[in-house]
Design a binder for these strands. Structure first.
Lengths: 213, 213
DNA sequence: CTTTTCTATCTTGTATGGTAGACGCTCGTC
DNA sequence: GACGAGCGTCTACCATACAAGATAGAAAAG
């Protein structure tokens, strides 16, 4: 089906198997997956709406280059929402929030010690998603997830730079502030945690300038 | 073209010409607009991704009913971002921000006195969009715009209840806090401004229960 | 009268043919 | 040698035809 093509292409894009600037035609992808052009076309439309492809009518369809400005604003959106989440969470600290988050951090430490960066990435995402779930706005996280694909492409380029120990430490600081009901402290900790991605971006741009616009 | 169908259908949906629960088939719309099924189909995909349509495979396509939970979380997203915007704006008050916003409010008052609710709505949207533009995150507003369609459907159901005078007053309070560099005050004012939509929602649900799920 | 099964007719999904537009290359001209 | 016009070839786009699934209603069996 068409959805299968969507998933396959999205994976290829975020894992940089399809690199920014690559041109892909409907016929090309259709032949590669053994389907007709129509499902591929619909997949293109979906991915274009998600900002991964750029359809230039009657010309070609290219994998969208990463827009530094877009990444910056995606970070702004994420920081706005995550800060609001952490403030509400610290303002009304639930009983089991600390335990649930503590268990997640423990698993993250295990993954970090095992050098399983893939699993650590999953747990890190789950940590932030759990924060949203604890105040009942998990749907809001789905929104972040869509825009996080842009950030994930950058993150994939900098996979080896495992600063997982630092991230775990920051997670602990955040949880501590939440359980203590320290709204201002939780906000500061969350902003600091998210701010680390800023330097990553400029480093990545310098390392792969042709992937950006 | 297909984009024309998208625009027409989106307008019909937010203006309640197509009501939640209505079933629309590709052939039906295709015949109505004098085009083939294919462009209509692609329009359906786009609108489904925006949460306005629900495509049930091999069954039918229906105008999605308004999800109260979805509206609630859309409001959460909007409040998170707008609060962050107003805090940054109050923290670094630019010189001409006060004048630009003041002119917009003056226009709003003119539209309100003329009972031109359509124009007032446009100006209200422009006001918030300008706030985003002033700190360079206009793209973030586009994101809100997508999710605001859900809120706009609710707003359209309560069109006559013109509380424009109150909105203008709140706008003035927000701008005053921004120009004074009062971060906390601006945040409080913005939250109060956005919170008014909450009672609107429950009222609307009671008035049109069959439009919600 | 109730229940079950089958069929007619909807729907969306897929495949294919044809169309118009944009690009690049070749050839001709200055 | 440099530049410009014309043509071939690529693309996304649209229209049409076919296929597969799902539902509603009628017909038949209990």
């Amino acid at each position: 089906m068409a959805l299968r093509v969507v998933g396959a292409l999205r994976d290829d894009i975020v894992t940089m198997a399809l690199r920014p600037g690559d041109v892909i035609s409907e016929s090309d992808i259709a032949g590669r997956y053994g389907v007709s052009r129509q499902p591929v076309r619909e997949a293109f439309i979906r991915l274009a709406q998600q900002g991964l492809l750029l359809i230039r009518p009657k010309r070609a369809t290219v994998v969208k280059k990463i827009s530094p400005e877009g990444v910056r604003q995606s970070r702004f959106i994420r920081e706005s929402i995550e800060v609001e989440i952490i403030r509400r969470l610290a303002g009304h600290p639930s009983a089991d929030a600390g335990t649930v988050l503590g268990e997640l951090i423990a698993e993250q430490e295990a993954a970090s010690n095992a050098n399983d960066s893939r699993r650590f990435h999953t747990l890190d995402e789950l940590f932030h998603r759990t924060l949203a779930r604890l105040i009942g706005v998990e749907y809001a996280w789905q929104l972040i997830d869509d825009h996080k694909m842009q950030l994930d492409r950058v993150r994939y380029l900098t996979l080896g730079s495992s600063s997982s120990k630092l991230a775990i430490s920051e997670h602990r600081t955040i949880v501590a502030a939440v359980t203590a009901g320290d709204v201002a402290g939780a906000e500061v900790a969350m902003r600091a945690h998210l701010a680390r991605a800023e330097v990553l971006l400029s480093q990545t741009i310098a390392a792969h300038p042709d992937y950006f616009e």
